[in-house]
């Protein structure tokens, strides 16, 4: 473009695009109205806006009129900020917070059904116990191990049990809570 004094000879650097930073896993907490269809709204929004949910946990809160969602999303800061802003636009979403960098307790629960023989059973039980897990069901050729902890800890146990043969595995996805006396729920303006 000739005649434009500030852009001569293409010297100006290319404008940065939103969301070109490093990707990592983010933990988002959303307090939402406990109404039919709210989960669908959240899921539909994330799909339509091209955000990929890694895990999603939904449950009741102290108040019967609200539910709490914990989402894990992988993306860079701008991408995830955009996701939280879009979530906020939903009328039924009362509060959204990215707690990734905050002091939090993050736990998930897994049930792992492991193939066992009389010989391997004690070994499986001891692996569970070493990782603060417990055996919640026992039969001739299988045990169900329940493990609660940080996702990385659950990953580790799953890895250790894999050599015995995992028949079935279910994980709840992360739930988180901030440490100390702060409360996300109390921040909801009513």
């Amino acid at each position: 473009m000739s005649g434009a004094p500030n852009s001569a000879a293409g010297a100006a650097p290319a404008r940065a695009l939103p969301g070109s930073g490093d990707e990592r896993r983010h933990l988002i907490v959303a307090i939402v109205n406990n109404r039919p269809g709210v989960l669908n709204r959240v899921a539909s929004l994330m799909r339509a806006r091209n955000f990929n949910i890694e895990s999603l946990a939904v449950s009741a809160t102290e108040r019967s009129d609200t539910s709490r969602m914990t989402l894990t999303i992988v993306g860079d800061e701008v991408h995830v900020e955009q996701a939280t802003k879009q979530l906020y636009k939903l009328i039924d979403v009362l509060k959204v917070q990215d707690v990734t960098d905050e002091a939090i307790v993050e736990h998930e629960l897994a049930l792992i059904k492991v193939r066992v023989t009389g010989k391997s059973r004690p070994e499986v039980v001891s692996i569970a116990e070493m990782h603060r897990g417990r055996v919640v069901d026992l039969s001739d050729d299988a045990v169900i191990v329940e493990i609660v902890g940080e996702p990385s800890e659950v990953d580790r146990v799953v890895e250790l049990l894999r050599e015995f043969g995992i028949k079935e595995l279910v994980r709840t996805g992360s739930v988180v809570m901030s440490r100390g006396s702060g409360s996300i729920e109390e921040q909801v303006k009513r």
Binding site: A16, L17, P18, Q82, Y88
Partner: peptide, 8 residues
Amino acid sequence: AEIGKNVV
């Protein structure tokens, strides 16, 4: 949500 969506 419009801010930072298309341009920085």
